[in-house]
Computed example of a mutant assay.
Amino acid sequence: MENYSYNSFILQLEGFSVTKDSMYPVFCLFFISYILIMVLNLGLLVIIFVDKNLHQPMYLLLCNLSVSDIIGSTHILPRLLADILRPPSERLISYYECVVQAFTTQFFSSTSHTLLMIMAFDRYVAICNPLHYAVIMTNKMLIKLTVSAWGVAFVFVWILLGLTIRLNRCRTLIMNPYCDNASLFKLSCEDIFINNVYGLISTVVLLTFSIGSMVLTYAKITVVCLTSKNKSLNSKALKTCSTHLVVYLIMLITGFTLVVLHRLPQYLDSRKLSAILFVIIPGILNPIIYGVQSKEIRKLLFEIFQSKLCLKLCKR
């Protein structure tokens, strides 16, 4: 039963409803998922940092995506793992901690969109204007694009949370495994019309620019590939663009599913699972997809594996 307390600074996370029999399997599943996210993304960062041949705009932008995935998983999964082992009555969180978690959640989600938009622009320049790529995608341009990706997301989310913080709270129960903006402003008994309008507008604007840039970019790339007889160019375009598109669709589908389920209270358990999968699925698949697609990364991993294998054989 939900508690009512005016502007309480201690909130309760509902979390997952797991039985004693399923508690440890669920814990192990999420723990393994978190370890995979950290190992894959940190491994990708180290590989790109170590190999100077990978110090290219595409891979440096990929580093930003890995950092975003690490932030998105680290602020959610460790806390979730601890809550799974706690009884529901002890899943408490301070209001300030909840606000920080909600901000990071929305920031991580928005930044993923803006980063993938910039990566699409990078692929467009590389395929459609290969001779001018080095002139356009300079270090200065790369820094501007990166700062813009994080900065735009920060401003959007700062206003979003600012509108939520101004509300008085009369409830204490967060109907979610972790804090996000929607769960936070639902604690208020005041009129949340402005929050809903701004949230809807910001989501529409972000998705319009995101999807619009993808459609426009890939339409131009498709035209270039169809009019070009360069098989090498077409093969390169197919590999890089298919990888980027798959990553984008994974993020879009998981995010859109979560947004829809937030508006359907009868599917509460599905929304909770979707909220976690929104973090886990892209976090695991992004580095795998890019790692498998990249010839340079595959080559470096093969050399590392081969050298370790030789060392083992020599010791014998």
Score class of each variant (00 low, 15 high):
207 L>M: 14
144 K>D: 08
79 R>T: 06
22 S>G: 01
77 L>Q: 13
294 S>F: 06
141 M>S: 08
97 E>P: 04
80 L>M: 14
218 Y>G: 10
236 K>Y: 12
156 F>P: 01
49 F>H: 11
47 I>W: 01
130 P>G: 03
2 E>N: 15
295 K>Q: 12
276 I>S: 13
210 S>D: 05
44 L>M: 15
164 T>R: 00
20 K>Q: 13
2 E>M: 13
2 E>L: 10
88 P>A: 09
127 I>M: 03
202 S>R: 09
8 S>L: 05
249 L>E: 07
96 Y>F: 13
100 V>W: 04
108 F>V: 04
103 F>Q: 01
215 V>E: 04
84 I>G: 08
83 D>R: 06
78 P>E: 10
209 F>C: 13
272 K>E: 03
31 F>K: 11
43 G>I: 11
107 F>R: 00
71 I>T: 08
198 Y>Q: 07
259 V>Q: 08
268 L>M: 11
307 S>M: 12
239 K>E: 09
97 E>L: 02
285 L>Y: 09
259 V>S: 12
49 F>S: 12
185 F>M: 02
132 H>Y: 08
79 R>D: 02
48 I>K: 02
117 M>I: 15
262 H>C: 04
23 M>W: 00
38 M>G: 03
22 S>K: 06
97 E>W: 10
297 I>G: 04
149 A>H: 03
283 G>P: 05
154 F>V: 01
218 Y>K: 05
188 S>N: 00
311 L>N: 12
132 H>V: 07
54 L>V: 02
284 I>D: 01
20 K>G: 12
71 I>A: 11
46 V>L: 14
130 P>H: 05
